[in-house]
Design a protein around this nucleic acid. Sequence first.
DNA 1: CGATTAACCTGGAAGC
DNA 2: TGCTTCCAGGTTAATC
Length: 294
Amino acid sequence: MPELPEVETVRRGLAPVMVGARFSKVTATRPDLRFPLPKEFTARLTGAGIEALDRRGKYLIAALSTGESLIMHLGMSGRFTIHQEGHRQPGNFVHGQAASTKHDHVIFETVRHRSVRGASQNLARIVYNDPRRFGFMDLWPSDDLENCRHFQGMGPEPLGNSFNITALNERLKGRQTPIKAALLDQCVVAGLGNIYVCEALYRAGISPRRKAASVCGVRAGRLYPEIIAVLREAIEAGGSTLRDFAATDGDLGYFQHRFAVYDREGDACAKCNRHIQRIVQSGRSTFFCGGCQR
DNA sequence: CGATTAACCTGGAAGC
DNA sequence: TGCTTCCAGGTTAATC
């Protein structure tokens, strides 16, 4: 499911349950997701306290009391649900369908010690479900994350301080690949995916077919604020729900109702009334308006 | 080096 | 109803 806004939505749902708790038990129902799980995966997590839950691009990072960080990527279809007494039951119904436990691959059981009198323990089950298994998990020393292979060469965080017009220009400079492909490259900007690249290019009036290098300068100046705006709006909306994305509490995102071009082939462009087109670039669908985007 | 393509997986929707 | 084909929010390995 996830691009940056969806991952951020998941992070915000998990954080209140995970941060400050510890893993009382971790179960993996298979040895691998997209990649093999790390050696001694469940043993290294069991008993660990969770000190923080952060996001970098499309990755979630749980800083543990053991000095390691649990790195999680949701791939295409990864989902977390929280099962806890008093917590809204998630995912039991998604789009009216009963959710299956068939692809529950990792189950985290957490315990939180409360200072509140009368409630000494608070248990939760956090379930990772991923039908396509493109997601993955890894463990890496927390003080060495910049050298972790998943983050090496990764571009700036689009909603962070290091992302600005200069940084964008710098990374588009000289690149002959279409701007669409360049923006999907996590080395240019972290966290963008197919939906938000299409939407940002539409808002900026830039053709997805244009060479990345030709976006340097004036066009980058138009693109930069639109990337930030579309991501902020999508986070605000709780992400986009296409087929089955839901937050940890089962809530559906609603940014999909605000798509201007994504998955809207044939619809009239809101600005110029021409038909939205669908083309294939580097094996993926691109939606755009040939009238507004040059 | 950079750019493009195939591959990894499952399930749902559309077409016949 | 059933079978086939296409498509999907991502990344990486292999090939030009």
